[in-house]
Design a binder for these strands. Sequence first.
DNA 1: ATAATATGTAACCAATCGGTTACATAAAGG
DNA 2: CCTTTATGTAACCGATTGGTTACATATTAT
Lengths: 101, 101
Amino acid sequence: MRPTPFHAIADPTRRQILDLLRRGPQRAGDLAGRFPRISRPAVSRHLRVLRSSRLVKQQRRGRELWYQLNAQPLSQVESWVKEYEMFWQDRLENLKRSVEK
Amino acid sequence: MRPTPFHAIADPTRRQILDLLRRGPQRAGDLAGRFPRISRPAVSRHLRVLRSSRLVKQQRRGRELWYQLNAQPLSQVESWVKEYEMFWQDRLENLKRSVEK
DNA sequence: ATAATATGTAACCAATCGGTTACATAAAGG
DNA sequence: CCTTTATGTAACCGATTGGTTACATATTAT
């Protein structure tokens, strides 16, 4: 079962990993090094979730594994959230809508 | 502990509840009625999660409880995702960025 | 008062999650 | 070859999740 991007970004560590990858591809070990409080295998498993939801791609280079951001699936999240924009952009409009009902 | 909006929208049923509430306030029972496959108490607990992450507000009207969308916390999700827009909008740019590194 | 209606909560359960330590695998270096 | 380095996986564990059924509470109707 492929986790939805909604599920993948629910975890704060996974969001942080994606944030790090915006600066460019990184090795698995480098990423793990950024999280002093959790073990390398834990990060490795977060990477697996991100991989299976297609948010990152991996590429072997010798014995190193480089992870690269693939933001595409996030467009699904954006388009969902976008439908809610009008509801917080002005509250008057929101209120009006409710009253009309 | 207040769940983040990221966590709240990770569950598909909760997203659907929010979708329903875009059309206007609804009673707890009406919402539950929209989900034939899961029990009313289950929906009630999803509502509790949404409540504690401030995505809905409730209002008593006699013996009915009306739920209303409060989209505000979703702006947090939107602004996070927004930072990734450029990464899927054109892949050439994305590729260039990687190569520069 | 009593019953009916609308809704939340408690107790329980199996599945999933996120972490750990120990082990497996694969490539590079001496 | 054997060792080191980089990384994933397995087994295990306690906490959380999402569902269920049974019960509690509050408000309206008879």
